[in-house]
Design a protein around this nucleic acid. Sequence first.
DNA 1: ATGGCGGCTCGCAGCCGA
Length: 255
Amino acid sequence: MKLSTWNVNSLKVRLPHLLDWLALNQPDVVCLQETKLEDANFPRAAIEAAGYQVAFSGQKTYNGVAILSREPLHDVSAGIPGWDDAQQRVIAATVNGVRIVCVYVPNGQSPDSDKYQYKLAWLRSLTAYLEAALLQYPSLAVLGDYNIAPTDRDVYDAEDWGGGILVSQAERAAFEALLALGLRDSFSLFEQRSPVFTWWDYRMAAFRRNRGLRIDHILVSPTLATACLNWAVDKAPRKLERPSDHAPVLAAFTV
DNA sequence: ATGGCGGCTCGCAGCCGA
């Protein structure tokens, strides 16, 4: 079973890239973030024609998440139950007995902003949600744009980036709290010869210079961690005309 | 040097992302 996540930064703009990528890579599950589409405008027909069922939760202009799956989606749930949020950032579904949670963690803007406090509160709520989910689902995968670079190795130049968002102590502590639940970062299950990134700024030729961050993650329950065959970031779509600033991330499992 | 790029909106400039 091949699971993947991709922040497409507007599904309207990136739909052709997505359809090409599906045909080429044949993932079983794709979690999308930043679809930026109201549900009425979601390109359901085009995605179903590509052979995928889809569940989505979106809004205009910002945010928006979706799960695509070649196998049926069961028990779809949008948002974090019991936690009111005007922003559409979470959707979950069960596929072949694997609970899939697609997350778009808030950006945080800057450490002195209200958006940063919202990000930390949001992560606390997510942690409680996943703690309960782990009890219910032995096979659980949490895929998405976490907007956190867990270590300095996940930043092209930690000093140049500074102590701002995506790398702050509080954000990294929130990421560690997810691992403390028993989740494993599937990236860390495999040796990497050199730093690996999943996002590169559109500006300053950051992709060409490989000045990126690793902020898109696939976290998995212990059961899935033992079944994980590989982890990879696919940089090919980032090289296309009019790319998303994120590249898709994939992990394959023996389930 | 705090910009830069790109997507969005009852747009023609400003917000936001990361």
